[in-house]
Structures are given as structure tokens and as C-alpha cells.
Design a protein around this nucleic acid. Structure first.
Length: 618
DNA sequence: GAGTTTGAAACT
DNA sequence: CAGTTTCAAACTC
């Protein structure tokens, strides 16, 4: 079986046995100095602080490669799925079992997963050699080595990333503490002497090892969104991240999965997006309340938020719908009901989302399972060859939508747009048939919808006052001619507000941040003037971020930055000047036939930033 | 839960 | 690229 545990064994020889006291580093440390246990704490802190830095370049993972090989996030049949929650709840016993499994897989390096992990962590052999060199150098340089430096360096050498070294440091710390207890506060100069001690030690260090495991497993759960550090609260526990061949994870990033705890029972799993440039590099403690309340408030994971893939036990489909209706559903887990597609087409929500189908799915003849990984990968490749962004997030949000948690979900987002736009004919973009509406975003000029009444922003882009005018003047399906920059129309709020917990595409719109007037941020509550409206549309996005993942579609950044700048909100503002409400109509109209509009959805996606601009300018 | 509607995805 | 078919989610009853 291809389990993430394998990767643990690949991390590096010094720790591969998972008994730190057996590692050369540990032995060396022990032999050199009677470190007081108290010292380990600052060491750990030091290493923690390293989390904010990039991994040493020498051991920087070839993400691009490993991502290609990345795989579904977890397997319901066992492998990676028993992760964080079990660590918290079942505790040490399982961790020990995992350790054994790791041992048993130690030499199994045949799978891509393992290969990736080896890559990600740097070659274990090389690491070991380098480590030895380093140790030798330190020995030569001074009889009183700089312990923090040494440990920091060695751990990073071993793990290739500060995060992992942190785990190792934690392990060391625990070890240190544990042994300190055993030895009356003095660092022992040898391994624990008795089996009992070993057992205690192992028990004591299980948590640290668990952290270590998690660090490793996260790699296994790597999803290869280039530069995409998605925080996927709400992916179903068994919705396993599909090894992305190309680009983005739709679902992890897509609109349906950002809610956090309220919808899930306690089985929480955390994956990690491997990335050298976390969007939110600081570690966060993710507090997730168990459904039973049993572990309420328990700290499930401490992980850089932007890198976490939190998988939670999915709720029942019924619950899902209920929660969706109640405004939580956007973030609910994916589960499909495919009957003919074998869950190998984009019809399948799971597949489209880049996750494996799971038990709650009601699919028939499903191939979207880990055991058919090859098929899944091949199919994905095929689909992506057809449309490279097929698995990209459908809804793309501006990056400046920093939000307050718990913000009223009814305050809709409009800074985000469906990347390709909808094509609704009958639903008036007022039902979830409409992908824009479903995504909680307004329609845009990308949309070819008819009779758009999207409550989150209509394609015609009526301003707030204008919107009413348009309402009264009768807005037909032929709104294309009056396309404008659509804005969120508060009056058009659905009676049952859409959940706005959308993933936020953190786009190169940092430029937006720069260009946008400050009041555009956190402009709460003030809806009414067109001038403020343009900012108001960002507010909902902020709420979106409350639990959202951050997506950075880095592949688009370089090429599209200039366009993003062009399409910055400033441009919108100008075009929406009260004195020239329709001033952009020419552009808009022309946008209908503009190159990037005319190219049609897919071409547009291919040639245009994955997030459509709010403005038709080009 | 079954049937219908809808629009995206896939196909031609 | 447009038209058609297939598909599964959303919706209704």
C-alpha cells in the first residue's frame, strides 16, 4: 500500500528509526554537553521562528517535480486518513502503530509518493552526509558548539524545511524533557537504559513524533497548486486530493469547502501544501470543535495556516444540503452521485475538485479512488491537456479581501468572479445552477447569461442606484449591450443569503491593494452610494476569507500582473465614476467583441488571468 | 425519494 | 466554433 508513512522513513537516516536517541545527532549532542532540559525550549522557539523563513535553498524541494507526482490527499482506505484527529483522540497508541508502519516501509522507496518525499526532504543520504560534515566542522571549530545553530542547522539539514525541523526540534524537546524527568533533570549521556524507559520515552515523544509525522504526511498530501497554499478547511475527510497533474485544485480551492468545524465531526485530518512561499507563513493553531464536543477546543494541529489541508469527516449529504441552505454549505465536503461518468469527468464534483470519492459519495462504478490512481491521473492529464485550467478554481477572488471572521455572510462578494463565467439561460443566475451564484460571486462580462439577476452582482453591472433603475426599466436577457462593471447590489440580496465562505484566490491583486484606496478595505456596512459601492463589493470577500484557503495562482502572476494592474479596481472606479456611469460602456460593449472576451471561455481562461478582471478594459 | 430542471462538460 | 448530447447537481413536489 502506498501510504504516507513510507515517506516518514525517507526523511533522513538520522531520524528514520524514530528513536531520536539512536540518531547520530542526538548521540552527539548527548555526548558533548549535559544540556539542561530548559535549554531545549529556546531551541524550539528558535526553530519555530524559522518557520517564517524559506527552507534552505540547498534542500529546497523541487516542488514542481514532486507536484507532478503528487497524489490524492488521503485515502479512505487507510493510509493517510488517520491523521491528525486520531493523533489527538487516540493518542499515542496509534502513533506508535504508525511508527511501526514507518519502520516497515522504511526501505520502500518505489512509489512516486516516496520519491516525492525524498525529494522534498532532500536526499536522505546526502542529508546524512552533510549532517555528518557539519557535525565534524562544528567539532573542529569549537569545543563548545553553538547548540542552537547546530540543532537548527542539523534539523533543517535533515528535514529540508523549517517546518519539519520544527517537528524534529519538538521531538528533541520532548525527548529532552522526558529524559530530564527520567534522569532528574540532567541530560543523560546515553540512551535510556531500560525498556521501561524506552517505552516511556516513546510514549512521551509520541506527540512530537506525531507532529513529525504530520509534517511528513503533509507532503504526501501535497497538492500541487503551484504556489498555491490553500487552506482547505472542509474538505471531506476522505476526499482525497487528487494528484494534480497540472495546475490547481478546484475544490480545495473552490467554493464549496471552506467552512470549518461546524459541519464536521471530529475526525480531522491535516494535510500540508508544500510550498516554499507560504502565503500565510505564520503558524496557527487550528481549533476545531469536535462534533461530540468531546474534544472541543482541542488544538488539533499547529501548522502554518496557509499550508494546511484540513480534512474532516464529512457530514451526510442531507446535512450537507441543509447546511448549504443555511449558508454553510459552500464549504461543505464534496460528494458526488455520479452514475455514468465513473467519476472521471468534470461532471463529478469530487473529480473536478481534485479529490477522491469517498464513502458518502453515492457514485456508481466509481474510478475516482486511490486504487485507480493511474486512471485518475491519466484522465486528469487528458482533461488538462484539453483545458489546462480545468481543475483550476472556478471562482477567483481578489487577494485584498481580508476579512473578519464571522462577518455577515449575506454581505456578498463581488470582487471575486467566476473565471469563465456562466451561461445561464433560465435560472436568471439566481439559483445554484449558476456557477457564479453558486460560487457566491457576481456575474461578469465573462458571463453569457441571459436575464442575469445574480444577487451577487449582475452582469450588467448596475450600480446600486442604477440597479434599481434597471430593475424598473426591465432588464432582459439581452443585457450584453449594457454591460458594465457589475457591483454588488445589496437590494438584490437573496432571501437566503448565499454562504460566502468561498475560497479566495489570492491573485496578483496585491496590486489591487496598492492601487485601491484604503477605504476599499473593510468598508463595512456603508452601502448606498455608488462610490462606496465599488468598495463594498469587497467586503463580502473579506468574510469569505474567514476560513478560507488562500490561493495563489502563481503561474499567472508573472504573465498577468500587468493585466491585473490594468484591471485594477482603480480602473473600475474610473469607469464607474458617477458622472460617467456608462462611460465604460464603449469598452464594455467592445469587450463583447474584445479579443479576450471573444475568445470564449476556455480560450479566455487559457490566455487570460485566471481571475477575470472586474473591468472590461483591456 | 422520485422526477424535473438546469447548465456545465463532453462530444460531434 | 457552434450545435448537440450527456451528465449530475439543483431543485420541486
Amino acid at each position: 500500500m502506498d501510504t504516507p508513512q513510507k515517506s516518514v522513513a525517507q526523511i533522513g537516516t538520522p531520524v528514520s528509526k524514530l528513536k531520536v536517541e539512536d540518531s547520530p545527532v542526538f548521540n552527539y549532542i548527548c555526548s558533548l554537553s549535559p544540556i539542561k532540559t530548559i535549554k531545549s525550549i529556546p531551541i524550539t522557539q528558535t526553530l519555530s521562528s524559522l518557520n517564517f523563513t524559506s527552507p534552505p535553498s540547498v534542500f529546497t524541494s523541487p516542488h514542481a517535480v514532486s507536484h507532478k507526482e503528487s497524489r490524492f490527499r488521503s485515502q479512505k482506505d487507510g493510509s493517510a486518513s488517520k491523521e491528525v484527529a486520531s493523533i489527538g483522540e487516540e493518542g499515542n497508541e496509534e502513533a506508535l502503530v504508525e511508527m511501526e508502519q514507518v519502520q516497515s516501509h522504511k526501505n520502500d522507496c518505489n512509489t512516486p509518493r516516496v520519491i516525492n518525499d525524498v525529494r522534498d526532504n532532500g536526499c536522505c543520504e546526502d542529508s546524512g552526509k552533510d549532517l555528518q560534515k557539519m557535525l565534524d566542522n562544528v567539532k573542529k571549530k569549537s569545543d563548545t558548539p553553538d547548540w542552537e545553530t547546530l540543532i537548527s542547522a542539523t534539523t533543517e539539514l535533515i528535514y529540508g524545511s523549517p517546518r519539519e525541523s520544527e517537528a524534529f526540534s519538538c521531538l528533541l524537546k520532548r525527548t529532552s524533557n522526558s529524559e530530564a524527568r527520567l534522569s532528574g533533570g540532567t541530560m543523560p549521556t546515553s540512551k535510556p537504559v531500560s525498556n521501561t524507559d524506552v517505552g516511556n520515552y516513546e510514549s512521551e515523544s509520541v506527540d512530537a513524533l506525531s507532529i513529525l509525522h504530520r509534517g511528513v504526511r503533509r507532503r504526501c498530501l501535497d497538492f500541487e497548486i503551484p504556489g498555491n497554499n490553500q487552506q482547505t478547511y472542509g474538505e471531506s475527510s476522505s476526499s482525497c486530493v487528487v494528484p494534480s497533474i497540472g495546475l490547481h485544485l478546484n475544490a480545495v480551492a473552490s467554493s464549496k469547502d471552506n467552512s470549518v468545524a461546524n459541519e464536521y465531526s471530529g475526525n480531522i485530518k491535516v494535510g500540508l501544501q508544500s510550498s516554499a512561499t507560504p502565503v500565510l507563513p505564520s503558524p496557527h493553531e487550528i481549533l476545531i470543535e469536535n462534533e461530540t464536543g468531546k474534544d472541543a477546543g482541542q488544538i488539533i494541529e499547529v501548522v502554518p495556516k496557509s499550508l494546511a489541508l484540513v480534512e474532516l469527516t464529512p457530514i451526510s449529504p442531507k446535512k450537507k444540503r441543509q447546511s448549504e441552505q443555511s449558508g454553510e454549505g459552500e464549504s461543505s465536503c464534496k460528494r458526488c452521485n455520479c452514475k455514468k461518468s465513473k467519476c472521471l469527468k468534470l461532471y463529478c464534483e469530487c473529480f473536478a475538485a481534485g479529490v477522491y470519492c469517498i464513502e458518502p459519495c453515492s457514485c456508481i462504478d466509481c474510478f475516482n479512488k486511490p486504487i485507480h490512481e493511474d486512471v485518475v491521473l491519466a484522465t486528469r492529464k487528458q482533461i488538462e491537456s484539453r483545458n489546462p485550467l480545468a481543475f483550476a478554481p472556478k471562482v477567483i477572488r481578489n487577494s485584498d479581501s481580508i476579512i473578519e471572521v464571522g462577518e455577515d455572510a449575506s454581505k456578498t462578494p463581488a470582487s471575486a468572479r467566476h473565471k469563465r463565467g456562466c451561461n445561464c439561460k433560465k435560472s436568471n443566475c439566481l439559483k445554484k445552477y449558476c456557477e457564479c451564484y453558486q460560487g457566491g460571486v457576481g456575474c461578469s462580462i465573462n458571463c453569457r447569461c441571459e436575464g442575469c439577476k445574480n444577487a451577487f452582482g449582475r452582469k450588467d453591472g448596475s450600480l446600486f442606484e442604477q440597479d434599481e433603475e434597471n430593475e424598473t426599466s426591465g432588464k432582459s436577457g439581452t443585457t450584453k449591450t449594457q454591460q458594465n462593471v457589475e457591483l454588488f447590489n445589496p437590494a438584490a440580496q437573496p432571501s437566503t443569503p448565499m454562504p460566502i465562505r468561498q475560497p479566495l484566490a489570492q491573485l496578483p491583486l496585491s496590486s489591487n491593494n496598492r492601487l485601491q484606496p484604503p477605504q476599499s478595505h473593510f468598508h463595512h456596512g456603508a452601502i448606498g452610494s455608488s462610490s462606496s459601492g465599488i468598495y463594498n463589493i469587497r467586503k463580502p470577500d473579506m468574510s469569505l476569507l474567514s476560513h478560507s484557503r488562500i490561493e495563489t495562482i502563481t503561474e499567472d502572476i508573472d504573465d498577468d500582473m500587468s493585466e491585473n494592474l490594468i484591471h485594477s479596481p482603480i480602473a473600475n472606479i474610473n469607469s464607474l465614476s458617477p458622472n460617467s456611469k456608462r462611460v465604460s460602456l464603449a469598452h464594455l460593449d467592445s469587450s463583447e467583441s474584445s479579443p479576450w472576451r471573444r475568445t470564449g471561455g476556455r480560450n479566455l481562461i487559457r490566455s487570460f488571468p485566471t481571475f477575470p478582471s472586474l473591468t472590461p478594459h483591456h
